[in-house]
Amino acid sequence: MDDEPRPAVLLEAMARTLAEEVVPATEGSAQHSVRVVANLCRILARELASPGTAHDDASAAELLDRRLRESDADFDESILPVLLADVERRLAISKPSYLTEPS
């Protein structure tokens, strides 16, 4: 049996505490660091909640990178949607608000 609160809930609470209590009480580079840490807590909370972050991605990226070194325009064009989907999956974790096309 696991204890409560669960990790994602705790990370959200940590982010909230840092953002609401610590950020206003600090300034300069310390304040910047605290903002960054609060944001990392939110990223980790989303990462825990996200399905299937594949750990065998590394070797797939290695293979793909090797193929891309050949700089074949047709292949590049065909793989772009696949890469975009993967970037969108990672952005949904690291910064969901960024997932709008810029003006």
């Binding site: 590394a58 891309l68 700089s71 793989i79 772009l80």
Partner: peptide, 14 residues
């Protein structure tokens, strides 16, 4: 570590 997206971007630039 590899970054295929960046590699693809450089291919386009070239």
């Amino acid at each position: 570590i590899p970054y295929p997206v960046i590699r693809l971007g450089i291919n386009w630039l070239a």
